[in-house]
Computed example of a mutant assay.
Amino acid sequence: MSALRPLYIAGRFLSRLPVPDPGPTQPSETGRSVPWYPVIGLLMGAVATLVAFVLVRAAAPPEVAAALVLLVWVWSSGALHLDGLADSADAWIGGLGSRERTLDIMKDPRSGPAAVTVIVLTLLGKWAALKVGNRGNRGE
């Protein structure tokens, strides 16, 4: 096994970054990829930071810069965390305290109104934070 195989497994699981395909994996290999998760997170953050830096240097309007950085942020993760957040929101509200109902909702690939609302509010909050951060860097 290549020494970088666990890194490739982590990269393919957590991101949409162009990471070499490790091929089929065994559960034990997936477990050995966990220590590489922070490295993948740093790479994803570096890509978003690079995009932000270029946009600030190009004097892009804060709204546009925030939207583009957010787009890269969501793309690089494949919306993995947003999907989990959506499932959790639907299950929490729709489960009504029933473990079975909660698990059934989390297995359903469709998103309900709670999921959509939570995702929109989360992305809006991230966009606003990026926009304010961009203004701060420009001295406005």
Rank of each mutant, 00 (worst) to 15 (best):
S2G: 11
S2I: 10
I9E: 02
G11E: 06
R12W: 06
R12M: 10
L14W: 12
R16T: 14
P18S: 12
P20F: 14
P22H: 05
G23S: 10
G23A: 05
T25A: 15
P27L: 13
R32V: 06
P35R: 13
P38H: 09
G41D: 07
L42I: 14
L42Y: 06
G45T: 06
A48E: 08
L50C: 13
V51N: 02
A52D: 11
L55C: 10
R57M: 14
A58H: 12
V64D: 00
A66H: 07
L70N: 08
V74P: 05
V74G: 06
W75Y: 11
W75A: 14
W75Q: 11
G78D: 03
L80R: 03
L80V: 01
D83I: 04
A86N: 04
A86R: 03
A91I: 01
S98Y: 12
R99H: 11
T102N: 03
L103K: 06
L103P: 02
L103Y: 03
I105Q: 01
K107T: 05
P109E: 02
G112E: 02
I119H: 02
L121A: 13
L123E: 07
L124G: 15
L124D: 04
L124P: 02
K126L: 13
K126M: 09
A129V: 14
R138N: 05
G139W: 09
G139L: 10
G139P: 07
